[in-house]
C-alpha cells in the first residue's frame, strides 16, 4: 500500500478546487454543490466551507445517493443499502458541482447525472473529484481534479477522510490480489 496524498496535499487540493470553482463560475451566483455518498458528501462539505471562507457567503449543499440509479443493480449480489438523498433546494437553472472522491469508470457519475435530472434542469453540471484514476468506460471527464493518479485496473485507490474513517486524511494505492 503506497501513500499518494497526505493530509496536507488533500487540504491544499480542496482549497485549490474551491478557487477553481469560483473562478470558472465567476463567484457563487446560482452555484450549488452536491456530494455523492459517502465520501463525496464529506468532500462537498469541505469545498463548501472553503468557498465560504473565500467569498464570505455560503452555497447550498446537497447529498445524493445514486444506488437506485446504478446500471448494475440487477447484476450485483443483493441490493445495496439505500440512504437518504437530501437536496432541499431547487436545481432548475442552477450551476451544480457534483463531488465524488474517486473518478474511475464514470458509471457512478452517469447514475448521478440521471438522478439530478429527476430533480430539475440545472443550467450546467460540473464534476469535481479528489482523485482521477483513469480507465473511463463512459465519455465523462472531471472539471476539477485534486490529483491525477495513473493506475492499473487491478489496483485499488483508497481514500481516507477523518470524518468517516477516524484517521488522518490520506489517499493510498493498493495492490489487489
Amino acid at each position: 500500500m503506497t501513500k499518494i496524498m497526505d493530509s496536507d496535499l488533500v487540504r491544499r487540493a480542496i482549497i485549490r478546487i474551491a478557487h477553481e470553482i469560483l473562478e470558472k463560475n465567476k463567484g457563487i451566483a446560482q452555484l450549488c454543490i452536491i456530494g455523492i455518498r459517502t465520501r463525496g458528501v464529506i468532500l462537498a462539505a469541505r469545498i463548501a466551507k472553503a468557498i465560504k471562507e473565500i467569498e464570505g457567503q455560503a452555497v447550498p449543499v446537497g447529498i445524493l445517493d445514486i444506488n437506485l440509479y446504478r446500471d448494475d443493480l440487477t447484476l450485483v449480489g443483493s441490493q445495496p443499502i439505500i440512504r437518504e438523498t437530501l437536496i432541499d433546494f431547487d436545481l432548475n437553472e442552477q450551476k451544480v458541482v457534483l463531488v465524488d472522491d474517486v473518478l474511475f469508470t464514470g458509471r457512478t457519475i452517469r447514475a448521478a447525472l440521471d438522478a439530478i435530472m429527476d430533480f430539475g434542469r440545472p443550467s450546467s453540471i460540473q464534476l469535481a473529484a479528489l482523485v482521477d484514476r483513469g480507465h473511463r468506460e463512459l465519455p465523462i471527464r472531471a472539471d476539477y481534479v485534486g490529483k491525477n493518479i495513473p493506475t492499473a485496473l487491478k489496483q485499488n485507490v483508497k481514500v481516507v477522510l477523518s470524518e468517516s474513517d477516524n484517521e488522518e486524511d490520506a489517499v493510498y494505492l493498493e495492490e489487489n490480489k
Binding site: D65, L68, Y69, L73, I81, I82, T85, D118, G120
Partner: peptide, 26 residues
C-alpha cells in the same frame, strides 16, 4: 430495522416532483 431504514430513504423519493427512480426497471 433494515426495512425501516430503507423506507426512510424511499419516503424522500415520493416527495420529489418526479416521483420515480429506475431501481426496478424491467
Amino acid at each position: 430495522e433494515m426495512v425501516l431504514d430503507t423506507a426512510r430513504s424511499f419516503k424522500e423519493v415520493s416527495s420529489r416532483d418526479v416521483k420515480k427512480v429506475p431501481a426496478l426497471r424491467g
